[in-house]
């Protein structure tokens, strides 16, 4: 288990895990049965499973953070700019709580993609 090195890895407390982090090692139960293979990209379901299984720390690939974590968040100005660009695409009432929240999330997403790459449109 502690053998072959496959790039940087770090021990992370289960409470500090985030979705998108990638397991550096297989996770086995006490009988040695495989629960989750190395290379698994963690989802919310996995994080809940760790709690259920009573696992406290796991080894994660990279510098201790998933790809999203090293990246800085867009500034409020960058988000506002993205929001101003997206707003004309919305034909309905942008003051409706659903639409307002959707616009806010899409603006943040667009600003994030502009900074760090990712699909900027369809």
């Amino acid at each position: 288990m502690d053998g072959a090195a496959v790039g940087p890895r770090v021990q992370v407390d289960v409470d500090d895990l985030a979705e998108g982090m990638v397991l550096a090692e297989d996770i086995n139960d006490q009988q040695g049965r495989l629960l989750m293979p190395a290379g698994t990209a963690l989802t919310s379901r996995h994080l809940r499973a760790f709690q259920l299984w009573g696992i406290q720390t796991v080894r994660i690939r990279g510098e201790g953070a998933g790809p999203e974590q090293d990246l800085r968040d867009p500034t409020p100005d960058e988000v506002a700019l993205a929001e101003a660009e997206l707003r004309p695409r919305f034909r309905g009432d942008v003051a409706h709580p659903f639409t307002a929240e959707l616009l806010r999330l899409c603006a943040r997403r667009l600003a994030h993609h502009r900074l760090h790459g990712g699909p900027v449109d369809g």
Binding site: L86, P88, R89, F90, R91, G92, D93, H96, F98, T99, L102, L103, C106, R109, P119, D121, G122
Partner: peptide
């Protein structure tokens, strides 16, 4: 609505049509 807002591909619609508020 959500996917049109995220602009993931398109089936021809170029914007986000009005929300049917009763649906939400």
């Amino acid at each position: 609505q959500i996917v049109n807002a995220m602009h993931l591909g398109t089936s021809g619609e170029q914007g986000v049509p009005p929300l049917a508020t009763a649906a939400w």
